[in-house]
Design a protein around this nucleic acid. Structure first.
Length: 675
RNA sequence: GCGCCUGUAGCUCAGGGGAUAGAGCGUUGGGUUGCGGACCCAAAGGCCGCAGGUUCGAAUCCUGCCAGGCGUACCA
């Protein structure tokens, strides 16, 4: 087409006509061109090409299967652990992930983050980037203050003797503090829930009110409650004149719930009404939990909130006794985290702490105020991002950057942290592996830094991923339904030990234990990674305990199988390497070809996974490769085949084994020699 | 309201312009005088949320709708 353009032949023609003319001109020349190309290719003498010929304008190249296979296998065995890796790229990428909060429990939600972060970092590293893993410990903030308040107020001296149990115990204290402080809200939310989804409850309101009246409750309170419940509106406790009206009201609510459990009515869906979220039994259980604490907690709860505020002031003032307690308890959690990360194989180049960027963050906000990016609004320091960018539609909205009492927010610290990553740590690109629910939050942080004139904000990227939920719903440490990492790991480990005992009893006890860990952790990790970032992971313990099918053990098993074949043959990668010259499969079988194609795909899969930040691609890839190996295994005997096929298949087995191991390593999953 | 995400087999998920839409689990029936059966083979099971559009061709791209989830000024 360019020739025709140059000669002016295309002037005055429509695009379509020009195309037709150009393709016509080319078509005439195609058969000649094809022959020319075929001749040149044939003359090049590439040993990977079997035959080259021109047919009707097409160039047909038949590959020399054995030569291509030998070249591929040679590369895999020669590069070993480095097979699949890309050429070095001079860019320092920091992947921040894991970010656990001290004084809180480490649960399966945190597991997804760590596993995903490690995989992303591994993949980027394999793609050629220089990568640093960073952890960012939430070692201070309101959650720590609440936990320490609850500890000092109710549990001093009760901590477990054994140091290993203290981190977990601290998490329980935190959960209790939350339950105490939110008690009134929980009670009122529960009443609203009943009003929303329990028609029988609303129907007996009249009876409840008479009961209250007899108890001498204030008439206005009763009218208020009646109105709110009938309309299923939230109840505000500060609008009640008598503080004990709810505790008085409570027993009759229990009577009603017990009656519903005793005489269950079948659920009839009503058009336009949402389905109930709880069964009558669950409602009663919830009522009982709250009832058990009603007498003490209802009255005390508001005072506790004041106490927490005082506790927070102690932190702000750096009260030495408080700081000492904070340091001591913080270490309980940190010891737990170090153990968990060691189990997960998560290693960090950089450890960052919220407590370290607290003051720098506040200074930065001062600077933002001085240059007019931040401003005071209703006593709060905010950045009105949309206004500053001149946006009409609400896009980035307004971000608070400092509490009205002058204490720091999460955002205060992240502003300073981001700056530190680029300016002090010399990072070229920074990635945050954080829950997708914080995506607006990160856009705001990055935009504020941009407004501030921070060029590198463009190299900051929030990698959001969806949360982990349970079959019965959202994980909530407040509801107490969050499966803790330790519990899940123990359950999966126990199951793995059982299966190993059953399948391979002759392994030594040490090997059994090692393999149990490899299989258990591998399964958990694979379950987290074989799902795309933007998909919710439904964590089902039953499923996690099944090691069949599309799961890590399938892939690990293929690796063990390949290892065993090589062991039987007495061959290794090193011993096979010199035998690759003139490798001869005989007639290449479809399963062999499929396997070779699978092995060859690793480098491009790594590049794609790195560009898209998607470990799922590698998870799918290794599963597919294991499947191809099983096809090969069932179709093509290795050890019993005559030479030269035997050696060729052994070499293919060794290359597969290596590729499987490399792929699993990217996901942080072990590749056992036997299992 | 606005914004982001999701909708594919009974269930959990792949596939992201190209052939008859694929796996696993579950269901039914098979396979080892073969290198490890944590495996393999076969069967049944789909208006790819709905409706338009772009294209020779759409599960895939565009628009609109429906359903669900999440976010949206002092939690992290």
């Amino acid at each position: 087409m360019r020739d025709l353009e140059a000669s002016g032949q295309l002037e005055g023609l429509s695009r379509k006509e020009a195309k037709a003319l150009a393709s016509g001109a080319v078509r005439e020349r195609v058969p000649l061109l094809a022959e020319e190309i075929a001749e040149r290719v044939a003359k090049s003498g590439n040993p990977l090409f079997g035959s080259v010929e021109a047919v009707n304008g097409y160039v047909n190249i038949a590959f020399n299967g054995n030569a291509v296979a030998a070249a591929l296998i040679e590369e895999v065995l020669r590069r070993g652990p480095e097979y699949g890796q890309g050429a070095p790229i001079a860019e320092l990428v920091m992947v921040e992930h894991s970010q656990p909060n001290t004084h809180k429990a480490f649960h399966v939600g945190h597991l997804r983050n760590s596993v995903l972060g490690v995989a992303i970092a591994n993949i980027l590293r394999a793609a050629g980037y220089e990568v640093q893993d960073a952890n960012y410990i939430g070692d201070i903030g309101m959650h720590v203050v609440k936990c320490l308040w609850c500890y000092e107020r109710f549990h001093t001296g009760e901590e477990p003797e054994s140091p290993e149990a203290r981190g977990r115990w601290l998490g329980e204290v935190y959960a209790e503090s939350d339950a105490r402080l939110n008690f009134r809200k929980d009670v009122l939310d529960f009443l609203q829930l009943l009003a929303t989804e329990d028609q029988a409850f609303v129907a007996v309101i009249d009876r409840l009110l008479k009961y209250l009246w007899r108890k001498g409750a204030d008439g206005e309170d009763i009218a208020y409650l009646l109105g709110r419940i009938v309309q299923a509106q939230p109840i505000k406790d500060d609008l009640l004149r008598e503080d004990d009206v709810i505790p008085k009201f409570w027993p009759i609510v229990g009577d009603q719930l017990r009656a519903e459990v005793a005489a269950p009515k079948p659920y009839v869906p009503v058009e336009g009404e949402p389905e109930p979220t709880m069964t009558p039994e669950q409602r009663l259980a919830r009522w009982e939990t709250l009832a058990a604490r009603m007498d003490e907690w209802w009255a005390a709860s508001p005072g506790w909130r004041d106490e927490v505020r005082e506790e927070f002031a102690r932190w702000e003032a750096q009260d030495p006794a408080f700081v000492a307690l904070w340091e001591r308890t913080r270490e309980w959690s940190m010891a737990d985290f170090r153990r968990i990360f060691a189990e997960l194989g998560a290693e960090f180049d950089v450890w960052l702490y919220e407590s370290e960027v607290d003051e720098p963050g506040k200074r930065m906000v001062q600077e933002l105020l001085e240059i007019g990016i931040a401003e005071m609004s209703e006593g709060l320091t905010v950045v009105k991002i949309d206004e500053k960018l001149g946006l009409e539609e609400p896009t980035y909205r307004t971000m608070p950057v400092l509490r009205s009492d002058g204490s720091s927010l999460y955002s205060t610290k992240d502003l300073a942290l981001t700056r530190r990553k680029f300016e002090e740590l010399g990072v070229d690109r920074a990635i945050w592996v954080v829950d997708v629910r914080q995506s607006l939050y990160f856009q705001q942080i990055f935009k504020i830094l941009e407004l501030w004139g921070f060029e590198q904000a463009k190299q900051a990227y929030h990698l959001g991923y969806e949360m982990v939920v349970l079959p019965e719903g959202v994980i909530s440490s407040r509801k107490g339904n969050a499966p803790l990492y330790d519990d899940v790991r123990n359950a999966v480990l126990a199951r793995a030990r059982e299966i190993i005992e059953e399948k391979n009893p002759e392994l030594s006890p040490q090997r059994k234990e090692e393999v149990a860990w490899q299989v258990a952790l591998g399964s958990l990790k694979y379950a987290m990674l074989a799902r795309d970032n933007n998909k919710v992971v439904t964590f089902d313990l039953e499923e996690a305990l099944s090691f069949d099918g599309h799961a890590a053990p399938y892939i690990q098993y293929a690796h063990a199988r390949a290892s065993r074949i090589l062991e039987h043959a007495g061959e290794t990668e090193e011993s096979l390497l010199p035998k690759l010259d003139g490798l001869d499969f005989g007639a290449l079988q479809p399963e062999e070809l499929g396997l070779l194609q699978g092995i060859a795909a690793l480098p491009e899969e790594i590049q794609r996974a790195a560009v898209e930040y998607r470990p799922l691609l590698i998870a799918s890839y290794v599963y597919d490769l294991a499947k191809r190996f099983n096809d090969f295994y069932h179709a093509c005997p290795v050890l019993t085949s005559p030479e030269p096929t035997r050696t060729a298949r052994l070499a293919l087995t060794a290359a597969t084994r290596r590729t499987l191991a490399n792929g699993l390593a990217l996901l942080g999953i072990a590749a056992p020699e036997a299992m």
